[in-house]
């Protein structure tokens, strides 16, 4: 009978499903093994931590992007928003906005503490995200268009704000968040992993997490099940903004400088990380675990290519091809799901 067959099918070991689930991890391990054989230095702990440190900013953004893509949305504005948030925060830490716009005065050294800078960066990011979420849910403009607009607008805002060039030289407590270490582990890596765990808990174990998956899985069904679709969709862009702000703070700390061109092109790498990690651009499918693996995978790839002295131009080509292949795989997996 129908029901019996479907039950049997469900109980069968599904090789394809298994591969789809662990493909990113398997690919990562294969890649690491390959690089290790070609270049033994690759596996040195210092290099591995280096990889993690390099990807931690991407990783923070990718966590936010996972929420967005789970609702079948996209955010292209993150690099620009990051630059803008970083500049505002840097200005705050250097003595406030008034100082910056006081013509002819030398900046006094009485800046604000690092945590005010961090809060500022995060607040700017969240406000930027909220504005975009508002445009998407209330003005009903597709996320692609809204955030394409945001990509340009926030970059413009950053350039306007940075009229006097980059803002550099922060207090040591600020810089620690980018350059410090606990034991051998760089602080940005710790920030990344802590927020990854937090985000995993939110998506996997909370009501809100369920709602994100539901809205991404089927908007109409979510609405008819009594979910507040608008607020869920808006919220993911606010969360994305939170991570853009946090990323801006950590990046500024690491470079000990904030500048208007920061974060250029980050959206592509971040979206690649999320998609490679198995999150479907169609929404409703994906995990933070996958995103972490996807992020590390991109980092390993870039790092390994550098060690092998592959030109950065070729690296860009490779990232581009991988993004397309990952989406092709996703589309294939979706059509398979539908056939079952």
């Amino acid at each position: 009978m129908t029901d019996a067959t479907s039950t049997r099918r469900g109980a069968d070991f599904d090789l394809f499903g298994f591969l789809a689930r662990f493909a990113p991890l398997i690919f990562l391990l294969v890649l690491m093994a390959g690089f290790a054989i070609m270049e033994p230095k690759f596996l040195a702990p210092i290099n591995l931590f280096n990889v993690l440190r390099q990807v931690s900013i991407y990783g923070l953004l990718a966590i936010g992007m996972t929420f967005v893509i789970l609702t079948a949305g996209i955010d292209l504005s993150i690099g620009s928003l990051l630059a803008f948030a970083g500049l505002v925060a840097a200005a705050v830490s250097k003595g406030g906005l008034s100082n910056r716009f006081t013509v002819g005065e030398g900046q006094d050294d009485a800046g604000y503490a690092w945590y005010l800078a961090a809060l500022t960066a995060i607040a700017v990011g969240m406000i930027g995200g909220y504005l975009q979420g508002f445009a998407i849910t209330r003005l009903k403009v597709p996320p692609f268009v809204v955030t394409l607009g945001g990509m340009s607008a926030f970059r413009g805002a950053a350039l306007l704000f940075a009229d006097g060039g980059p803002i550099s030289g922060f207090e040591p407590n600020f810089v620690w968040w980018g350059q410090g270490k606990v034991g051998p582990i760089p602080i940005p890596v710790i920030v990344f992993l802590v927020f990854a765990i937090l985000a995993h808990v939110v998506l996997r174990y909370t009501r809100y997490g369920r709602q994100v998956y539901a809205v991404g899985g089927n908007v109409e069904a979510a609405r008819l099940s009594g979910l507040n679709v608008r607020s869920v969709v808006t919220s993911v862009y606010v969360i994305m903004g939170f991570f853009a702000g946090l990323g801006a703070f950590v990046l500024s700390a690491r470079l000990n400088s904030a500048e208007a061109v920061a974060g250029t092109g980050y959206e592509l790498t971040v979206i690649a990380s999320v998609v490679i990690g198995g999150t479907s651009l169609f929404g409703g499918v994906g995990t933070i675990f996958g995103t972490v693996i996807g992020t590390i995978l991109i980092g390993v790839l870039l790092n390994g290519l550098v060690l092998l002295k592959v030109s950065s131009y070729i690296q860009q080509i490779i990232i581009g091809v991988i993004i397309v292949l990952a989406v092709a795989f996703d589309t294939f997996a979706k059509s398979r799901r539908r056939r079952v």
């Binding site: 998956y213 539901a214 899985g217 089927n218 069904a221 979510a222 009594g226």
Partner: peptide
């Protein structure tokens, strides 16, 4: 399929999505 089910999600989520408030 279009208006009720979340086809990409588990039976569990599909069944409890409207009553999550009681399962808080």
């Amino acid at each position: 399929k279009q208006q009720a089910l979340f086809l990409s999600l588990a039976i569990r989520t599909n069944m409890s999505v409207a009553s999550l408030g009681q399962l808080e």
